[in-house]
């Protein structure tokens, strides 16, 4: 069931008799879908984390425990002039992200960190479709803010999806990085995926501890961009 958590979340809304209806969904997340403080573009630059539940910090007690929050702490402690905006949304697919992007681009973005595709992969959506949507997102961001720096966070699907699909999926991120002169974190969940101690009970979302490792993976690339 965990594999389909994203769908399942929706299902709890589209409740029907056979399922455990009307219970409060197990989401217990405090992540902010934007920073608590409103962006103040005049004085500082903005880092926008655009992603799904991994960005939103699904299942964590405190929203700031998600990897964008960890990075924000790092930026703050280094006193870098960046504002961190968390635009993660649980269950988000590349198509959904593509559609809601314009809502977010109303604010100026200096560094755009794109973390999407995992839900596409778990739903078996054709890799070409995922690739197309991600490209479209990058295009839109670049069109609006040509100066923007883009960091792609690479995803992989678990081996059970089949080597063929998994390989094609994995290849999407380096391909897009190369095509768009972006930066790439090769695999966001490197060192976390498959290690049960670092994941929540659903085996898919990192714990706070796992999120720190994830944040490090991202930081390794991001610090150069900053």
């Amino acid at each position: 069931m965990h594999k389909f958590k994203l769908t399942f979340l929706l299902l709890t809304t589209l409740i029907f008799a056979a399922c455990d209806q009307n219970k409060k969904p197990s989401t217990d997340e405090g992540a902010k879908s934007s920073t608590a403080a409103q962006p103040d573009a005049a004085t500082s630059k903005t880092v926008l984390f655009f992603g799904d539940s991994l960005t939103a910090g699904y299942g964590l007690d405190d929203p700031s425990e998600a990897f964008p929050g960890v990075i924000k702490d790092k930026i703050d402690s280094l006193k870098l002039p960046y504002k961190v905006v968390n635009a993660g949304l649980s269950g988000e697919t590349t198509a959904g992200g593509n559609a809601r992007l314009s809502w977010l681009l109303k604010q100026k973005v200096d560094i755009f960190i794109l973390e999407l595709g995992a839900n596409d992969g778990l739903r078996g959506i054709p890799v070409s479709e995922t690739s197309k949507n991600l490209q479209s997102i990058i295009d839109k961001v670049k069109a609006k803010y040509p100066e923007v720096k883009i960091v792609l966070l690479g995803m992989q699907v678990p081996p059970n999806m089949g080597a063929d699909y998994a390989n094609k999926f994995k290849a999407v991120y380096p391909d897009l990085t190369a095509k768009n002169h972006a930066q790439l974190v090769p695999f966001l969940l490197q060192g976390v995926a498959g290690i049960s101690a670092l994941n929540q009970a659903d085996g898919i979302h990192p714990t706070a501890q796992g999120a720190k490792i994830v944040a490090n993976n991202v930081w390794d690339v991001l610090k150069g961009v900053l």
Partner: peptide, 28 residues
């Protein structure tokens, strides 16, 4: 259950699971 509806089911015998190569570290 809710899950069954999401993806159609294929039954295979377990003795052939290994050779599919789908159950590895990181597999869900």
């Amino acid at each position: 259950g809710a899950v069954a509806g999401i993806a159609p089911v294929v039954y295979i015998p377990m003795q052939y699971l290994e050779q599919t190569g789908l159950v590895k570290i990181g597999s869900r």
